[in-house]
């Protein structure tokens, strides 16, 4: 099955905040050590990675033929989306394992695990 792992947490919290150091960490890059470890369990990372903070986010909506562009994320929340991965694995237990091993989860963030619509 194909799952989205959506990482959330306080983007200003120590450990979760993007710093020059975290930006340089290969851990969370596509194909990094996390993904390599998972491959031994037949869990495959298809794509994904960490995101720049919400200060770099732009929100787009449309109204008729008009495109409305605004600064910031789609909702002001206590936790922000920190990144995502798309993985292919056998079942939910494998996806839970992948989520629990991700650096964001280890550092105090939350991971939402969602299956894709069948056939997607």
């Amino acid at each position: 099955m194909k799952y989205l792992l959506l990482y959330a947490g306080d983007e200003t919290a120590a450990g979760l905040a993007v710093t020059e150091e975290t930006a340089a960490q290969p851990e969370e890059e596509c194909g990094g050590p996390w993904a390599q470890e998972l491959r031994e369990r037949q869990i495959h990372q298809l794509t994904g990675g960490r995101l720049m903070p919400t200060s770099a986010a732009t929100t787009v909506r449309t109204a008729g033929h008009e495109t409305l562009v605004a600064d910031g994320p789609f909702a002001e929340t206590k936790e922000q989306i920190l990144g995502f991965d798309v993985i292919e694995c056998a079942d939910l237990d494998a996806a839970i394992y992948a989520a629990s091993r991700h650096p964001v989860a280890v550092l105090g963030g939350t991971v939402e695990v969602r299956p894709f619509l069948q056939g997607a």
Binding site: M1, Y3, A90, D91, L92, D93, A95, V113, P115
Partner: peptide
């Protein structure tokens, strides 16, 4: 069904 909860006895580590 939708979330892919497996139908099995969990492996030893779980």
């Amino acid at each position: 069904r939708d979330a892919g909860i497996p139908y099995r006895v969990p492996p030893a580590h779980l």
